[in-house]
Each structure stands twice: as C-alpha cells, then as structure tokens.
Computed example of a mutant assay.
Amino acid sequence: MRRVPWLSPLLCGVVLVAGAYAGLAGLGETRWVPFAAGLVGLVLVDRVRWVPWLGLALQAGLVVLVAFSDGSGMARVLFLLLPFGAYFAFGRAVAVGVGVGCAAFMVVAFQVTAPGWTRSVEHVSDLLMFGIGVVLSLAMAELSAAAERNRVARDVHDGVGHHLTAVAVLLEKAVAFRGHDAAVADRAVEDARESARRALGDVRASVRALSGPFRLGDALRQLVGGLDVTVECSGDESRYAAPTLLALYRAAQEGVTNALRHGGGARVEVTVHCGASRAELTVVDDGPGFGRREGFGLRGLRERVAEVGGSVDVDGSGGTRLTVVVPR
C-alpha cells in the first residue's frame, strides 16, 4: 500500500515555520543546524524505499533530533509520522504499539526536562492532544488503505476481467468454427492468446501505475483487437490529463466487457470524442438491453469517473448504451 506523499512535507513545513519563528523571536532556543538537517532528512527518508524496520528507525531518530533542536515545541507533532508509517509497513497492531511507545517516550521526556509536568496544564494538554493525533493518524491510514484496496480491485476488475471475457468469447468462437473453418478457429485461438498477453500487460501497467505516457486512441484499438467491435476516435485527446483519459479507457473496457458477456448482440460500437470543453465516450450494443441491477463493475466505474468530475449514464432500452461525459 502507498503512503500519503504530502503528509511528511506538510508537517515538516509547519514545524520549520514554528521553529524558525521561535528562534528568531527569542521565544525558544532553536539549534539551527540539527533542526534543519533533521527536517530535510525526514522528507528524504519518506521518499526512499527502505527495509521497513530500517526506515522506521531512521525516521524515529530524525524525529527525536528535530524535537530536541526545536525551540517552539511544535516538533512533537512529527511523532505522528511514526505510527502512520508503521501502519503501511507492518499493519495496524504494530502501528498501535508504535503510537503507545511514542506517547510513553513523551512522558519520559517531560519527566526529565520538566519535573512536576503533571501539574502543568500545557504539558498535560500536549500529551492529550498527541493521543488524539495518534488516533486520527491511524484513522487516516485506514481510510488511505481502504481507498488503495478499492483502486486495486477496480483495476483488476476493469483490466483483467475484460481480457478474460475476451479470451472466453474467442475460445467459444474457436470451438464453434473448429469443424467448419479451421483457419477462423486458429485465428480465434491466436487472438485469445494475445488477449491473455494483454491481461498480463495490464497487470504490469497497474503495478507501474502507468509510468509511461497514455494514449487513449491506441489503447482502445488494442483493447478490441480480435473482437467484433468497432472503434471511432475523434478530437484532440492531448487536451486532457492522463487520469481523465484512463477513466474513459476503463469505461470502454467495462462497456465492451458487459456487451460481450451479457449483451447477446452481434454489434458493439465504441465512440469517443475529445472536444474543446468535454470528452464523451459511448459504448453501444444491439443486445436485449440492460437490467436495473448494477454490479460491482458499473458501481466502480461511476466512482472512477466521479473522481475526474464526470458522469455515467446507462440506457438499457432497445440494446444498451453506456455514455460517459467528462468536462475538460
């Protein structure tokens, strides 16, 4: 699972401003060299893939360094990075243990640096607020992990699910033509083999998170290769960001998969137009129509399109028409 990339820079930025203000205004003693070096180190450590225990140990050491170099006391908020990072590296149980350990460390630090701190409203409130912060950071980690699991599930369903449906359709075609036209049957088997390769490529693309440039027109033509599906693209897709184009591609996958699996019709058409103000994609088949109940695929598609500000409409009267509109 992926961490939230902006959390560490945000907290480090807040601590930098607070520590700099305290040092310059004479409100506290900020040791500039270890303070700045520790903050830079925290941001860099969060960007590198470490062995989990080593990464957590480095992060903990840098947080302690910044905390004892900060004149404002704001650096205590950086301890929240430890249970948050531990959640993604080791799971919930370890993250809770790390959070309790951080709270215990703060109690010991207060006892050493401020004897009688239990009678100080400021120190007690700091400890209580830290406890609330640990709870909120773990809740944020849970939500982030749930969103990541949902994204992976959608990618598997939209990508691999489409290709497996295509493989099944092509193998059925090969069986049907085996005794009548061997050439057609052999071609269907070859197309099924190619769809299986594309399924593997789709998995690798999801793992790489589409590190290369994405071309909607090319991807759609590859999507329907070997299938009785027509594709028509118009407009300028370069006007649109990659997440928008990927959402349109996944919509086409879902529409074509449903048409092949449930449509029962002989004709499937995919049309996409990337206009100046909006992009519109339609998938039409001449099958028996679409029932009222929507499965996981369409629900996931609505969520994916909503993330890029678009809308999804399904018309099941006289065949099925899937329409996706996304503003530029």
Rank of each mutant, 00 (worst) to 15 (best):
L301N: 07
A95N: 10
G291F: 06
V15A: 03
P52N: 05
V268C: 03
C12M: 04
A109S: 02
V98C: 01
A103K: 00
V231C: 00
V169F: 08
A114Y: 15
L58G: 13
L24G: 08
V156R: 14
R76K: 08
G287C: 11
L42N: 04
A20R: 08
M129E: 00
V135K: 14
M140V: 15
R187S: 11
V40R: 02
N150P: 00
D70N: 09
L44I: 12
P52I: 06
R31T: 14
A279C: 13
P213G: 01
G255A: 04
R31Q: 15
R154V: 10
W32T: 14
P243V: 02
R321N: 06
F35L: 15
Q59K: 10
L298T: 08
Y249I: 01
G310N: 08
R299K: 09
G295K: 00
H262T: 03
G85L: 04
P34D: 11
V66F: 09
G73D: 13
A266W: 01
P34F: 05
A25T: 14
L7S: 12
M140A: 15
V231S: 00
G19A: 14
G91R: 07
R304T: 09
V169A: 13
V100S: 08
V169D: 05
V207Q: 15
G289L: 00
G61N: 11
A276C: 01
H163Q: 14
S125A: 12
W117Y: 15
R47S: 13
A89D: 05
E280H: 06
V100I: 14
P327A: 13
F84P: 02
D218K: 02
S120A: 09
L220Q: 09
V284K: 12
G318I: 12
V326M: 03
E237M: 12
V175F: 15
D46L: 01
R293K: 04
R178D: 06
L281F: 02
R208I: 00
Y240P: 15
V64Q: 09
R178L: 04
G289M: 00
Q222S: 13
A89T: 05
A57M: 01
R151I: 06
R293E: 08
A168P: 00
S311R: 12
L164Y: 05
G161N: 07
V134H: 04
A22H: 08
V283E: 02
W117D: 11
A95Y: 11
S8H: 04
E148S: 09
G264Q: 01
G309K: 09
V207D: 12
H180S: 09
